[in-house]
Structure formats: structure tokens, C-alpha cells
Design a protein around this nucleic acid. Structure first.
Lengths: 319, 319
DNA sequence: CCGGCTTGTGTTATCGCTAACATCGGTTAA
DNA sequence: TTAACCGATGTTAGCGATAACACAAGCCGG
């Protein structure tokens, strides 16, 4: 018992015994068993974080925000990956909850019914991140992708482009956020009496190379396009490289924009127009909710919306 | 007890009770408490994976190999990030071990003394990955960075380049692998009576942009350089873009090479020469060791070396 | 000098599961 | 017929920590 007290800095222990205990612990290489500790205390310092993928860069970045904020709370993130698959997500949620974490952060608002039931039953704070267009189980933090799409459409139209095309991932792939962005985009275009003149989709492979290919394809098919809206920056960058190589007048004759604002791409010949998704802030805010750091009067779910910022870069005409 | 048996598919349970139990479990939203289970059974289906960073892309890729292989073993990876800091690594190791995982996978062979002691004492398989130039605590899987550096030097010299420069991260940053690569590189050059004619380092910021800047700087300082060896593909790509913009004759007058073989960059105007670090294979092999899938007679530490493959791309002269 | 307080340490009973063994009706083999 | 055996289920005793309380010694003020 005294050992337990020393190792947790809890309760009064005389300086003499304290050092004796620490010395012995070091000598024996003693590592306390958190499993037993957690069982006894009914407290677990873990926060489950469930994301669809690690190879998208977007998610690691959110993770950074989370772990940064969690660092000085004694909580530790534990990452699970769902591979964009609903059933996999269900398993991961189940697995995580079976370790009775202090909270759960999960990407997206769309989950299977069983998943939603588990989250609702969990008895710990649940924060759904990176999207707020929908009904959260508990709390939600992120941007409105519908609004991001709308905003981009407005900027494009304001800059005078009219023959606008969309390039993105195959939608059935469960990328709800990209879908919502496109919906908002088309909605806003419709408001101007416009619509997307052509579209092209891809799946798998290197995004940069795919962006290049898709751009070539779509421009050959519909040569009078004057704007290319990409569903992410990587394919946008591929498209940009292609356009520059072809000697197209960017942004004069043709404009381009992506989405996400990945820092990775600074250093391209031109800065691609994009929209920051506030990933770091999202991660931080989500972690704060779990850690109970947010001074809010609200008991239950809280929705934190960030404002996606347009970064015009060099690939969209100045108004 | 019967419930426990049903939920773990262990022992004989009649079909009737089995369905009754499952039905009740679903109705109640029962999620078994793995903490208690682990404590009782002294078994934990978690594998700790400790990497320096998530933003380097290299590490997520290794992770993919790991989780892919672990998927059908009932084991689950748990990721910890050390931020390239020895003391942080120590904490993460301690934290992980206190959950008594089934194994530990950790990047690199260089750890603090305390860390090595903990790993040695852990009583579970420990696999150090991505480097084999050194003395592993238990098992090791990866490539020899010294040898990778040597091989690249040989290829460069064989292609006829002589005024060779190196560009990389600031070394004190604990990037032992980059350091070893450079050492092997210089060693091999020395064998040909050559040495690195200039070098340039960076830290922080967008790698693509930094690669561009560094390349400009070094070429202005030492204009007769005919080969640029970058310590990673991202800065190499930045350099490549710069060279192409300047209208330099690549690979005729000047050659470039990076390291890692990141798929991300397919789609650049030219393919950068690079060397594949076998990240996926490394992840897989490490996971296999932990899962005990490798049929080896050896009891203790096993060292698996992969052979880095040169991908000449379009930025190095054909011999 | 005693009750009450503080301080440091020890005891006991959980926490929710599983290993290991016990039990019991019903076969099966000798 | 009887023992051995089997499949299905129940019982008991931990796993290694912590919460909550018990206890002993020293100190204080009235």
C-alpha cells in the first residue's frame, strides 16, 4: 500500500520511506501493473481515437493536436484505424470500449446503428470530429464541409470562372466529408445558375499521379473547362503540375483549387488555392472536451464549429 | 462462466445457451471488461508500437505493414509517439509496459540506458525496427542504413558523377538512421578517393520548400556540384522542382537522389532516384516475430535484414 | 493528563473476469 | 453391470492493484 502511495504521489509518505521505495523500485525494475490498477480504481487514463486511415496525413495532423493537448492531463491517446470500413469501425469501437477508456474521439458523424448504440451507451464523453453537418451522438468538433464547399464555389464564381469541373475520389468509398463538400459546392453554384460541367473520379494509387492523369483526361474530354476543383490537395497538386507542364495559363485561363491546406505542399512551383480544415484546432478542442478543460455550463453534447479559411494561393484569379 | 465461454468461443457450450447468451448480451449492450479479463488471464492482446513521429509518412507506412499482419492474429497495435526525444521515449515505454502488452515494436536501435533496461526486462518479445546497424536488445528488423548509403554512393560514382554534395536534416536531432546513411555514403566515396564537396542542413518547416531553398543555397555557394544526395525524398523533390525550374540539365549536368521511395511522389515531372527502405516488409516481419509466426529454431533475438533497392528513376545518368 | 488532531503506515475487501477443478446426467466400451 | 468418459455447466480462488478504513505514535491546547 505504501508503495502504491509513493508511485502515485498520493497521500502522505515520509521522505525516508519514499526514497527507500523508489530506490527499491528502480533496483528491481518494477513497473506497476496498470491493468490491476485500473480494475481497482475504475479509472483508465486512455483516450480512444478512431480514424479511418493513417496514410492521409490529415489524420496524423489531428492526432498531433490531440496528443499535444492531452500531454499535460495525464491522459494518453490510443489510436485505432477503421480503414473507411463500417464493420471495421464497429470492431474497433467495441475493442476500445472494452478497455473502458476515459473518452472516445472518432472521425465523422456517420456510423452504423450498432456503433452509434455503443457510443451512446459508453458512459464516457464521445467527440465526433472533422464534420458537424449532422446529428452527433454526444459532442462534435470540426468544420461544416457543406459550408466549405459553398464558400469555395462563391470564391470561384466571384473570380469570374464559369466552366467549373470537379475531381475527386470515388464517393461510394464512404468519404462523407468529400460528399458533403461537393453537395455544398453544387448548391452554391446552382444559386448562381451554374452547375458542374464535368467530373472525374479515382480510387487508389498515388494521389499526385492520379491528379495528373485525371486532369489530362478531363481536359481532353471537356477542353473549355476554366476551373478545376479537387477534393484534396494532393490530386490538386498533381493537376497543377500537369497544367504547368502543358503551359496552360494558371490562373488566367484556368484556375485550380484543392482542399485541406496541407503544409507538405509548400514548395510547389505555385501555391495551390485551398481551404484550411482547421485540423490542429479540431484535435485540440476535441481533447479539451475529453479532458473536461472546456469551461461550459452545458452538461451533455457540445458542438464546436471552426471556420474554414480560404487560402487563395496562386491558382485562382484575384477578383 | 458460461457467458465468458460464449463470448470467447472457448470450451463447449450448447448451441441453445450460446444463442441465449448472445441475444442477452446484445439486448443489454454488454461490453466485456478487458481490464478484468486481462488481469485474470494474464494475457493482453495488445502490441505496443513506438515511433518517433506520425508526420513523417515513413512511420505510418510501417504501421500499415504491422496492422495488416496483426489483423488475423487477434493482436492489436497500440501506437505511441516519442517525438524523437529520448526521455519521452522512456516515458512511452514505461507507460506501454505497464499495460503488459504481448510484445513491443520500437523504431531504432538507439535508446537511453534506462529504456534498454526496461526493454530487456520486459519479458515479452521486443523488436527494434528500421535499422540493424547496432546491437538489438532482442530482435531487429530493417535495412542497414550504412549499406544503403554505400550503395547509393557506388551508383552515383558509377554513373560518372564526381562533385557530390549532401543535403539533410540537422543531425544532432537524433536521426541516427540519416547519420548512418551519411557515414556509409562518405565511407564508400572515400573508397573511390572522393569526398562530399559541400553539405547543407535544415530543420523544421515544409520539407518540399526547404529542399528548394537548400538546393538554391548550395548551388549558389558551390556552382560546380554535379550531384545532390538528399537524406529524404521530400527535400529531394523540392530540389528537383528547383532544378527543373532553373532549366538545369537533369540528369545530364546534375543528378539527384533521395531516400525512402515514398509512393506519394509518383507524379512529379520526373521520378526522383531513391532507395526503397522496405517499410512495408519491415512492418510485416516485425509483426510476425511478435505473433510468433516466424518458424525459427532460434530462441531469442533474431535479426532480419532487408536489402534496400535502388530505384534509379530519371534523375541519375544511366551508366 | 486527556481528548482530539495530524501523520505515517497497515488491513481488508473489492474491481470483473478467467483457470482450474468439480459436478452431473447421459453414453459408451468392456 | 460397471467403470470410464464425455459434453455442458457450476464453484472457487485468485490476478495485482486501490479505496476506505483502522491503527499507532507524536503533538497540541485546555
Amino acid at each position: 500500500m505504501t508503495v502504491s502511495r509513493v508511485l502515485r504521489n498520493r497521500g502522505d509518505v515520509s521522505e525516508a520511506t519514499r526514497t527507500r521505495v523508489l530506490e527499491a523500485a528502480r533496483r528491481l525494475g518494477y513497473v506497476p501493473n496498470k491493468i490491476a490498477g485500473a480494475l481497482a480504481s475504475q479509472r483508465v487514463n486512455l483516450v480512444g481515437v478512431i480514424i479511418p486511415s493513417l496514410s492521409n496525413m490529415v489524420f496524423p495532423e489531428v492526432l498531433s493536436g490531440i496528443s499535444e493537448t492531452l500531454e499535460d492531463t495525464g491522459l494518453q491517446p490510443v489510436v485505432g484505424v477503421s480503414n473507411y470500413q463500417g464493420d471495421r469501425e464497429e470492431q474497433v469501437i467495441y475493442e476500445m470500449l472494452s478497455w473502458r477508456p476515459s473518452g472516445l474521439i472518432i472521425a465523422g458523424l456517420e456510423h452504423s446503428e450498432a456503433s452509434r448504440a455503443m457510443l451512446a451507451q459508453a458512459g464516457v464523453p464521445v467527440v465526433e470530429i472533422m464534420d458537424i453537418d449532422g446529428e452527433p451522438v454526444d459532442s462534435a468538433v470540426g468544420i461544416s464541409h457543406r459550408r466549405a464547399g459553398r464558400k469555395m464555389a462563391e470564391a470561384i464564381v466571384a473570380a469570374g470562372y464559369r466552366r467549373i469541373a470537379f475531381l475527386g475520389t470515388h464517393m461510394p468509398t464512404n468519404d462523407h466529408r468529400a460528399r458533403k463538400r461537393l453537395e455544398g459546392f453544387e448548391e452554391a453554384l446552382a444559386g448562381f445558375g451554374l452547375s458542374v460541367v464535368d467530373r472525374e473520379f479515382y480510387s487508389g494509387g498515388s494521389a499526385l499521379a492520379k491528379g495528373r492523369e485525371m486532369t489530362e483526361t478531363i481536359l481532353k474530354r471537356t477542353p473549355d473547362i476554366d476551373f478545376l476543383y479537387y477534393s484534396n490537395d494532393m490530386i490538386g497538386a498533381g493537376g497543377l503540375l500537369y497544367c504547368l507542364e502543358q503551359g496552360l495559363d494558371v490562373p488566367g485561363k484556368i484556375g485550380l483549387a484543392g482542399f485541406n491546406g496541407v503544409e507538405l505542399l509548400d514548395g510547389l512551383p505555385r501555391r495551390l488555392a485551398t481551404m484550411d480544415a482547421c485540423r490542429l484546432e479540431t484535435g485540440r478542442a476535441a481533447a479539451e472536451i475529453i479532458a473536461g478543460k472546456r469551461a461550459t455550463g452545458v452538461v451533455g453534447g457540445e458542438v464546436v464549429e471552426f471556420e474554414p479559411k480560404l487560402q487563395p494561393g496562386d491558382t485562382i484569379r484575384k477578383a
